[in-house]
């Protein structure tokens, strides 16, 4: 599959909190990238780098400070009628990080999953609503006996699957998965990742997969973006990012991942990233440059020359 059609275009997206005040935080600072139909774009970075904020701004949980998000050519953040908004809500969905906080503890699983169905009026009657919920439970590997239970009776992995069923209920095309596995045990992570992959194949979904666990991201993603302090510093096909990491921050991130292989661990050398290495001059323009095919790096012209010499 060679994805070419742009489903989502993020153009110069900025999200500042407390704008103009002393404690201004530039959570997302001029980030641009595209997401192609049917692909999985991974977004990695350390806590506080703005990766979650990027996801939440794309789905309109926050109003963007500046910049544009185009979904299928339609601007997400412009003023919209109720109907247009609802359409958008059906196309874009989100899976959350914390399997404990993401389900309403006072609602039955049936009502949690059916929430989207209720809001968008997707079921004509109660029987159809039930059937849809049962089907969704089946899809995520649970069964209909689970529908009448409350979230606290489930384990973390099961809850995460309920969260996925809730997102799928409105038949979205694009799903933002905000660290969906980082709160889960290793053996359960694989269940959820496999489920997400299967669903993508079956329904042709597009994912934005936000995570800090790089090994899983590499496994699930077609392309990966690396964020550092609100900026996207590198964007490349998954394989290429691992074999040809160019930005020093990406290199340090990759070198820090422990790997379940004692021999490899004994020889692993950690690189340390010091932002001072760039030594950018005030008049230098720093932006994303394509160094190898589809491999973009945030760098200056001078660094670009050096990178090209090294990696081409």
């Amino acid at each position: 599959m060679k994805p070419t059609e742009k489903l989502l275009q993020i153009k110069h997206l900025k999200q500042y909190f407390n704008e103009g005040k002393a404690n201004e935080v530039r959570a997302v600072d001029d980030v641009s990238f595209d997401i192609y139909k049917g692909e999985t774009l991974g977004l990695v970075g350390e806590s506080g780098c703005g990766k979650s904020t990027t996801g939440r701004t794309i789905i309109r949980l926050y109003d963007a400070t500046d910049g544009e998000v185009l979904y299928d050519g339609i601007s997400v953040h412009s003023k919209k009628s109720k109907k247009e908004l609802k359409d958008l809500n059906r196309k874009m969905q989100m899976i959350f990080q914390d399997p404990y906080a993401s389900l309403n503890p006072r609602m039955k699983v049936m009502d949690i999953i059916a929430e989207g169905i209720d809001i968008h009026g997707l079921a004509k009657n109660d029987k159809e609503r039930k059937k849809r919920v049962y089907d969704l439970l089946e899809t995520v590997g649970l069964n209909k006996e689970h529908a009448n239970r409350y979230p606290h009776e489930f384990s973390g992995g099961q809850r995460q699957r309920i969260g996925i069923a809730r997102a799928l209920a409105v038949e979205p095309e694009f799903i933002i998965a905000d660290e969906p596995i980082s709160a889960l045990d290793v053996s359960i992570q694989a269940q959820v990742v496999n489920l997400l992959k299967e669903l993508q194949e079956e329904k042709g979904l597009t994912y934005l997969f936000i995570a800090h666990d790089l090994s899983m991201v590499k496994y699930i993603s077609d392309r990966i973006g690396v964020m550092y302090f609100g900026k996207l510093v590198e964007l490349a096909p998954a394989e290429d990012l691992y074999t040809h990491a160019m930005h020093p921050y990406t290199q340090s991130l990759l070198s820090a991942i422990p790997f379940p292989d004692p021999n490899y661990e004994r020889t692993r050398v950690r690189k340390i990233y010091d932002p001072k290495v760039h030594n950018y001059q005030p008049d230098e323009e720093v932006k994303m440059h394509e160094v190898r095919p589809n491999h973009f790096v945030y760098c200056s012209e001078k660094e670009l020359e050096a990178l090209k010499a090294e990696h081409l």
């Binding site: 939440r56 789905i59 309109r60 949980l61 908004l85 609802k86 809500n89 059906r90 874009m92 969905q93 989100m94 959350f96 990080q97 914390d98 906080a101 993401s102 389900l103 309403n104 609602m107 929430e115 989207g116 809001i119 968008h120 969260g163 809730r166 997102a167 409105v170």
Partner: peptide, 21 residues
């Protein structure tokens, strides 16, 4: 909390969020 955010991404109205969640 994330379950409220989830309701918002599903397009829930304020009334629904207040009374149901």
């Amino acid at each position: 909390q994330e379950f409220i955010l989830a309701a918002r991404t599903l397009g829930a109205s304020n009334i629904r969020i207040i009374f149901k969640h």
